[in-house]
Computed example of a mutant assay.
Amino acid sequence: MSEPILQLTGVETDIAQYHILQGVDLAVPAGQVTMLLGRNGVGKTTTLKTIMGHWRARAGAIRFAGEDITALPTPARARAGIGFVPEDMGIFTDLTVEENMILAAASGPLEPARLEAVFAAFPPLRTFWKSEAGNLSGGQKQMLSIARVMAEERRLYLIDEPTKGLAPAIVSTMARALRELKAAGASILLVEQNFAVARALGDSAAVMDDGRIVWTGAMAELAADAALQERLMGLSMETAR
């Protein structure tokens, strides 16, 4: 396994009076897709938001590319090369696709080569370039959400359930785009409930339960062991979609 680009050690996060993360230990290998799996409500989204700095860790440490980022504000983490795609997409619906992309490229104008890569991954965005994002379909909005973090070079992508509620054809487009990100050298930490996608994309996996990581290993190992899936998550990848 390659060296981790991201390492969480003993991370604890509180939201209001609730103790959500209860000592998370997680390593994300560089250049791989790591699946963060588990039942609803076990802390997966809170983990991503803590890494991004939307929630502050009460205890523990977060290291990115060898640097301690535990106390850094969210903008500094983004400048360091972390991109975040939230479950609610985070796009500006009253702005055009073009305006959304321009805002996402905080360091300067959109590079033509990077924009062409976005269009190659998500062809509908070229078609609707001048359209308001609020008029896009659900799948097209999700494409734009991922495209926005592709507007600048990122070393690590945190992506929260990108295929949720999407038609199979759109899911295939998403999966292909994520493969291309990985092929370009990016590392990805992906929360995903579609086990077919998880099995197809994941190199490694970490399973959460009750605010902790309870299992880590190769995605292929988890995908091949129905009994392990049942024990860790209460369902089998062969029956869940």
Rank of each mutant, 00 (worst) to 15 (best):
T96Y: 08
Y157V: 03
R154L: 06
T70R: 01
T70E: 13
A167Q: 11
G81D: 09
R114S: 11
E161W: 03
E67P: 04
S107I: 03
A151Y: 00
A169L: 11
A61Y: 10
G108L: 13
I146P: 00
T96I: 09
L115P: 02
A104H: 05
N135S: 13
D68N: 12
P112C: 01
V171G: 02
M143A: 07
T127V: 15
K130Q: 15
L166T: 04
L181R: 14
A113L: 13
M101L: 15
Q142M: 07
K141M: 04
T96R: 12
I102V: 15
A133P: 03
V85N: 04
V118S: 02
A117T: 10
L144P: 00
E152M: 10
P86Y: 07
F64P: 02
F92E: 05
A61P: 00
G139L: 02
S145D: 01
A177H: 06
A78C: 10
R179K: 13
P168L: 12
I170P: 00
K164W: 15
F84K: 06
A113H: 09
L158C: 10
A121Q: 15
G134N: 12
W129G: 00
A71V: 09
S172Y: 09
A105K: 11
G108A: 07
T127P: 00
G139T: 01
M89W: 07
L136R: 04
E180K: 14
G81M: 10
P124E: 08
P168T: 08
M150S: 02
P75Q: 08
A71H: 13
E67V: 13
D160N: 05
E161F: 07
M101A: 04
M143D: 00
A76G: 03
L144V: 02
R148K: 13
E111V: 10
A117Y: 04
G134K: 09
T93E: 12
V149S: 04
G138L: 01
P75R: 04
I69W: 13
T163M: 03
